[in-house]
Nucleic acid binder design. Structure first.
Lengths: 159, 159
DNA sequence: GATAAGGGGACCGCAACGGTCCTGTTTCGT
DNA sequence: ACGAAACAGGACCGTTGCGGTCCCCTTATC
């Protein structure tokens, strides 16, 4: 299914959340606002921090803030931070495999595919995924929309 | 890593092999020619046959043949046949999940990403991944190329 | 009728992922 | 100076899906 890790999904939610409200937000606060379990939020933020996508501030009154605005963060960066480099097969990156056989029939063949995907992902920013805009849906309105097609901001009413 | 299943990799190898030589080839023959284990080749071919990408002929002197030429088979078809529909997250296809929470913050947000990837994969055909052309590398030449950048035809010298 | 080949499953081991928790270390507030 | 708040980093399992193999049945040719 071209599996994308669930953590990446959470990372987008967390990043978009960071793009709103206070400039510096704590992970418990983000967890409460998004509905994502707090340990998971913390884990995601640690990874994003290590990747340089968010900046952290330690100690009391600490928290995280965005380094770049949402429209300057391509989705490819998030995927690369959580799931590692964008490569469809294990044969194309470090190249540690395929040594046993000595001859991997697909050597380098997936490169154009990987480049095409990378280009596609580089053209979409987090702002594109959060574009419902500044209007927040009220709880009643969100429920009226049914289980499908809920805007990203649906969970933000909890804030 | 945007994991793509290994079976898909094998499927491309098998399909490209089917694009060469005899029109109808048996799975043991393909296994011997590509170096892929025979049970795995058979499994891949069954899936490809069910997806309509190859046609099968049962009985003695049976085998498989391509339905469409390689340059008419986008890589997206192979991925869809092996890995299922191209969708980065479980939330975008059938939509059976996220019912427990009732509110999935990413509802529909991944759609543009999925469409971009699908478009990218639809533009690359199997012929693009097999383009070393009619010239087959001799074993010595293939070895001289080093562990990297081996052409797809490298294993076909075994035929 | 014997044989060769595909059809359709079932089966099991393994590795990766999701999710949680624990123990530091740092900084702000009192 | 002390304590609390919050990040840093890693360890820890359960689960899930995948890779790989094997079996029996059906079909078609010789």
């Amino acid at each position: 299914m071209l599996r994308l890790s669930k953590l990446t999904d959470y990372a987008v939610v967390v990043m978009v959340r960071l793009g709103r409200g206070e400039a510096v937000q704590t992970s418990p606060c983000i967890a409460a606002a998004t509905g994502v379990p707090e340990p998971t939020v913390a884990k995601v933020l640690k990874i994003l921090s290590a990747a340089g996508l968010v900046a952290s501030h330690r100690g009391a009154r600490g928290g995280y803030r965005l380094v770049r605005p949402l429209d300057a963060v391509p989705i490819a960066d998030i995927i690369a931070a959580i799931d590692g480099p964008i490569a469809l097969t294990a044969c194309v990156d470090g190249g540690t495999s395929c040594e046993a056989q000595g001859l991997c029939p697909m050597r380098g063949r997936w490169d154009p595919v990987n480049r095409a995907i990378e280009a596609a992902l580089a053209g979409i920013t987090l702002a594109d995924m959060a574009d419902p805009g500044p209007t927040f849906a009220a709880p009643g309105e969100a429920a009226a929309l049914g289980p499908r097609a809920l805007p990203l901001s649906a969970l933000h009413v909890a804030e």
